[in-house]
Simulated assay, not measured.
Amino acid sequence: MNFAQLLLPDFSLILCGYLLCRFTPLARPTWDQVETLVYFFLFPVLLFQSIARTPLDVGAVSGLAAAGLLLGLAGITLAYSLPWWPGLRHVDRREHAASAQVAFRFNSFIALALSERLAGAQGLQLIAVLIGVCVPLFNIGAVWPMARHAQTGFFAALVRNPLIIATFAGLACNLLGLHVPGWLDPTLNRIGAASLALGLMAAGAGMQFGHLAQAKALAVGVLAIRHLLLPLVAAGLGFALRLDPTQRAVLLAFSALPTASSCYVLASRMGYNGALVAGLVTLSTVLGLASLPFALGVLR
């Protein structure tokens, strides 16, 4: 499998956003409006459709769902513990609050494409299970530290968060057996494609590598969790829970994915250092070229 070919489109869109913002009249004010559109409309529609459209067979995939939840909890715990790691005891707490999400969130677009290549239609069903059970947990895990450090109510922040609203709405429709009308699918698919392109370009537009230089230890810790520790945890869970080979492969791929491009949008819209998070998203996309072969080739 050509992992470089799979990740190149995302990295190219980030680079396009960076170049457009720096060298064309499409400067920062333009991208502020793009971020608003992506955060409040495009990404929520995409999340809702991704979760609602694939029925969940709870019985057949309970082991995989449990592994996904345990993997997610491990990622969140490791990310939250970073300020107590050696060399990170004096890390800026606001930068940690914004960056922690990078350690456990994932790029769902790459997840869907990769799972289909690994196991066809079954792979898509299995990754849909992981998306359905992990996205609510990850979104809550991403919002909580930022809401706490911004001194805003955590539950108020969750209730107002459009990504979490869309996630729970999608799960409710899925479990109740409700479906989006077929005639609406093409429109939703186009909105999803737009959210991918514009979200990645907005991340590139907000990117400032200088911020990474000011938080080197934090960046190393966050990316080490995302691309090294979580694949190792996934390998252990697959063995301990006796997942079948296909489920184990999908879990390993899930554990090694680049982080979500919406990390930047969420941090920026909540008033945090979006430039730092955008740089981490970019580096995570590049590191995915190494972590995916590591998880699927070595650990598998």
Results as ranks from 00 to 15, higher is better:
Gln125Gly: 13
Ala100Phe: 00
Leu88Ser: 07
Phe109Gly: 05
Ala113Met: 11
Gly141Pro: 03
Gly87Arg: 08
Pro145Met: 01
Phe109Tyr: 15
Gly87Leu: 00
Val102Gln: 04
Ile164Gln: 06
Arg160Ile: 00
Val133Cys: 08
Phe155Asp: 01
Gly87Ala: 06
Phe106Ser: 08
Ile164Tyr: 06
Ala100Arg: 02
Ala147Leu: 10
Ala166Trp: 02
Leu130Asn: 01
Pro83His: 12
Trp85Lys: 03
Val102Asn: 01
Pro145His: 00
Arg93Glu: 09
Ala166Pro: 07
Val143Ile: 13
Tyr80His: 12
Ile127Gly: 08
Met146His: 03
Leu112Val: 15
Gly132Ser: 15
Leu82Val: 12
Ala97Phe: 00
Ala121Leu: 11
Thr152Ile: 14
Ile140Asn: 05
Thr77Met: 12
Leu114Cys: 04
Trp144Leu: 14
Gln125Thr: 12
Ala128Val: 03
Ile131Arg: 06
Ala142Met: 06
Ala113Glu: 10
Tyr80Glu: 08
Val133Thr: 04
Val159Ile: 13
Gly123Asn: 07
Gly141Asn: 04
Leu137Ser: 10
Val129Lys: 00
Arg105Asn: 08
Ile110Val: 15
Ile164Asn: 00
Val91Trp: 01
Glu95Tyr: 11
Ser81Thr: 09
Leu114Lys: 01
Arg94Val: 08
Ile165Arg: 13
Leu124Gly: 10
Gly87Lys: 08
Gln125Ile: 01
Leu124Asn: 09
Arg148Glu: 11
Ala150Asn: 13
Thr167Met: 10
Val102Asp: 02
Gly123Cys: 04
Ser81Glu: 10
Ala147Ser: 13
Ala156Gly: 15
Thr167Val: 15
Ala79Trp: 06
Gly141Tyr: 01
Val129Arg: 02
Leu137Thr: 05
Arg117Thr: 13
Phe109Asn: 08
Phe155Asn: 02
Arg148Gln: 13
Ala97Leu: 01
Leu130His: 03
Ala100Glu: 02
Ala79Gly: 15
Ala113Cys: 02
Pro86Asn: 08
Leu158Pro: 02
Ala121Asn: 10
Tyr80Val: 14
Pro136Asp: 06
Leu124Lys: 04
Ser108Val: 09
Ala79Phe: 06
Pro86Arg: 04
His149Ala: 11
Leu82Ala: 11
Leu118His: 03
Glu116Thr: 10
Pro86Leu: 07
Ala98Asp: 01
Ala166Gln: 05
Asn161Gly: 04
Ile76Arg: 09
Gln101His: 09
Val135Glu: 10
Gln122Asn: 14
Ala111Ser: 11
Val129Asp: 11
Leu78Thr: 09
Val143Trp: 01
Ala121Asp: 09
Phe155Glu: 03
Ala98Val: 01
Gly141Thr: 02
Ala111Pro: 10
Ile76Cys: 01
Pro83Glu: 10
Ser99Asp: 07
Ile164Glu: 04
Phe106Arg: 04
Ala166Gly: 08
His96Thr: 04
Ala128Ser: 14
Arg117Glu: 15
Val91Gln: 12
Leu78Trp: 07
Arg94Leu: 10
Trp85Glu: 05
Pro162Ser: 10
Val129Gly: 09
Ala111Ile: 05
Ile131Asn: 11
Tyr80Gln: 12
Met146Pro: 01
Arg93Ile: 13
Ser115Cys: 13
His96Phe: 10
Val91Thr: 15
Phe154Lys: 00
Ile131Gly: 07
Gln122Phe: 00
Phe155Gly: 06
Trp144Asn: 00
Phe154Gly: 07
Trp84Lys: 04
Gly123Val: 02
Val129Ser: 06
Gln125His: 14
Ser108Leu: 12
Ala166His: 06
Gln101Ile: 08
Pro145Gly: 03
Ser99Trp: 05
Val91Asp: 07
